[in-house]
């Protein structure tokens, strides 16, 4: 029997003996030798099932200056956009700076608004969420259920592995974002059992590649994390912090920063400093937005769409 026919035969009948099965997923072709008794009906790793999820970032609840007098209102508009999506997302990733000053009432308001989406939410903190007296404990107590260390976590959904990293804790003078040895050691262990064909989504607040060092737009030890992710066929890195969409592809890794729901920032190096970019009221909403990601089996399992608030 020709190999192609044999493969088709295997697919059609779900033959459960010993055989060689080729699959293409996450951009990596793999040949998996099936042991006796381990048939197609019971694959060793979960198959990718289509789903969507949403990334929101930098809601900065409490911010009330030029160009946005009410960051609560624009966050509410972002949540309304999520509710209006034709396909109900599986969950929301919030990539940090929930609050402006880590005040309890800011977190309370953010939670109340986000609850209107009616979806599970996974948070990683931004540096604005570490400003309570106990340097981030308030955030961790509120959003850290099920996390390890300073709030990092991983979970699987429909065949995709998600990793939430914290790179805003215990920052050093003159540095940028920072992951730290304990978190990197955990990441190594967390990724170890995964097949290279597993699509991986990494989300963290500060970009995990250096966009602009002079403004601190990068993570000092991100190269160590990326080295651990190198063997995977599909890696999507979702960040916030810089309040604008910038993307870069490096091999099988796609880096993506998201818009804020509160205020935009200047393009890297344009102007004297980062910070709120002043815009006329009529132009603000075009610079704010939410991101929807779609997962489907195939060589490029993740695709994304950035939608502005207006």
């Amino acid at each position: 029997m020709a190999e192609a026919h044999r493969r088709r035969f295997l697919e059609c009948l779900g033959w459960a003996g010993t055989g060689l099965v080729w699959t293409v997923s996450g951009g990596v072709s793999t040949a998996a030798l099936l042991a006796a008794g381990e048939g197609l009906a019971a694959p060793r790793k979960p198959a990718i099932q289509p789903f969507t999820f949403v990334q929101v970032s930098d809601s900065h609840i409490g911010f009330n200056k030029d160009p946005n007098p009410d960051a609560r209102a624009t966050f509410r508009e972002a949540v309304a956009k999520i509710r209006a999506l034709p396909d109900k997302p599986a969950f929301i990733l919030h990539t940090g700076d929930v609050s402006q000053l880590s005040k309890p009432e800011e977190f309370d308001d953010a939670d109340q608004i986000l609850r209107e989406a009616g979806l599970p939410v996974f948070h990683v903190p931004g540096e604005h969420d570490m400003l309570d007296e106990r340097e981030g404990q308030a955030f961790l107590e509120r959003y850290g259920h099920g996390t390890l260390g300073d709030g990092w976590r991983s979970f699987d959904h429909n065949g995709v592995h998600f990793v939430g990293l914290v790179n805003v804790k215990d920052l050093k003078a003159g540095g940028m974002g920072h992951l730290g040895e304990p978190q990197l050691a955990w990441l190594k262990k967390d990724l170890a059992p995964l097949a290279a064909s597993t699509p991986v989504v990494v989300y963290a607040h500060i970009p995990l590649w250096t966009i602009y060092r002079e403004w601190g737009w990068g993570t000092d030890d991100s190269a160590q994390a990326m080295a651990l992710l190198k063997r995977f066929g599909s890696v999507t890195v979702l960040n916030g912090h810089i309040h604008q969409v910038i993307q870069k592809t490096e091999g099988d890794v796609t880096f993506q920063t998201a818009r804020s729901t509160a205020f935009p920032q200047p393009a890297p190096g344009q102007g004297r400093a980062p910070g709120p970019l002043k815009l006329p009221a009529g132009k603000l909403r075009a610079a704010l937005g939410v991101r929807t990601l779609s997962v489907a089996p195939g060589a490029h399992p993740l695709s994304l769409a950035d939608a502005a608030l207006a």
Binding site: E127, M130, L171, G175, E214, G216
Partner: peptide, 12 residues
């Protein structure tokens, strides 16, 4: 005494 902004550590 060296110091920095712990929110924006590139500020020293």
């Amino acid at each position: 005494y060296a110091y920095f902004c712990s929110i924006h550590p590139h500020m020293t």
